[in-house]
Design a protein around this nucleic acid. Structure first.
Lengths: 219, 219
DNA sequence: TCACGCATCCCCCGGACGGGGGAGGCGGTT
DNA sequence: AACCGCCTCCCCCGTCCGGGGGATGCGTGA
């Protein structure tokens, strides 16, 4: 009745270290290892573990895709803990969005590792799964915001931001020291790029694509 | 070097149970108890524990206010775990916003309790503190949304929702099987209630007050 | 009963908005 | 040199929008 674990990491040294730590713990059992994402999928399908320690950066198939595949196509999918080096790694959010139950930093202590595995295996985390999903969704919007920002010229972005503050064209013109006609043309090109019919739809798009976020005006 | 804990709960039975569980664990030590929020503040200030188990519902001073007071006015503030009965308890989010490090359901098992305390005491949680704060902020908006919903008539709320979908007055009229003039009057009263100058500002207000949330159209 | 909020519809009117054009300058790339 | 994207500004015009009035009916509750 012990917790069965599969370790997926491209570095054998890391796999060995993790295995050593986990095997020493009563109630924990490492039943498989994988060096690539594709291998991870295969091994997990074969072994049906309770928990998977999944590195994000792996050759052939990264940890996120592997997570998606595993959670999508199994009857009794395992809990997946994403292992990463940096806590602001954007992959982390992608992984959570893919359905991972938690994540762990590589600089974590052995005790933290064991604790995290037991926690996730128990089915509950300190925060609700729904909350984790909400977080991931929030970050997904942030990512899309960058994509949007890339499609807009600096001026357009500036104008869009002022639109999301509820300003009229005339007010935007004053604020930016521009002619009203200039603002109009920027707005027109914004409407085209955003697929919006009027400024209201443009503002909605700005919110939905994460160009602006409720709560905080700037950034 | 063990983890020092203070238990704050108005029911002596609960305090006893928690103490029994925690005292049995090596490395954990219950150094104080409190039956009210005010008492909790006093005891925590005196004992300077590492972790506080804080009930949300307590006489005299609730767990949220107590948390605020403790985190605001101490040199080395303790980690605070909020204990509650229902996981959708709205107080929970208030507590997280006040700076609590995590929360725990009363129906949790003894192992989960111990695990949570150790986890919080170690200074790291599975999710970033920033993430927890983001969650709390998100829920704060949801709370405000209810307040807003209360000020609007059902029809107005319906119209506002369609406005946030980018519809024109005429389209809203069609959708609701109404005359265009009727929609106009609802919009007019919405603008007044929301303090908006035009429909764009109304939509912005809807987002900022949490009446709608980016990502999910419904709810 | 009378008042009030809510929902429905009506009129007039001015202004802001958005579409469709065009034009000039400026700074890069090819 | 020619091209292209970006920024700037201009004109015309139709339309949607919002302000300011009102009117009617229908419930609830004082």
């Amino acid at each position: 009745m012990s917790v069965r674990i599969v370790i997926a990491d491209d570095e054998a040294l890391v796999r060995g270290a993790l295995r050593a730590i986990l095997s020493a713990e009563p109630g924990l059992e490492v039943t498989g290892e994988a060096a690539t994402g594709a291998e991870a999928v295969a091994v997990v399908r074969a072994k049906e573990p309770d928990v998977v320690l999944m590195d994000v950066r792996m050759p052939e198939l990264d940890g996120i895709r592997a997570t998606e595949l595993l959670l999508g196509g199994m009857q009794r999918p395992p809990r997946i803990v994403v292992v990463t080096t940096f806590e602001n790694d954007s992959y982390v959010y992608d992984a959570l969005r893919a359905g991972a139950s938690g994540f762990l930093l590589k600089r974590s202590s052995a005790e933290e590792l064991v604790r995290a595995v037991r926690l996730v295996a128990s089915g509950d985390s300190l925060l609700f799964p729904a909350a984790i999903r909400a977080l991931a969704a929030a970050h997904a919007r942030t990512a899309r915001a960058d994509a949007l920002r890339g499609r807009l010229t600096p001026r357009e972005a500036q104008v869009l931001r002022l639109m999301t503050e509820g300003l009229t064209n005339a007010e935007i013109a004053t604020r930016l020291t521009l002619g009203p006609e200039t603002v109009k043309s920027h707005v027109a090109s914004l409407l085209t790029k955003l697929g919006a019919r009027d400024r209201t739809q443009a503002v909605i798009a700005a919110y939905e694509q994460g160009f602006v976020t409720p709560g905080r005006a700037g950034a």
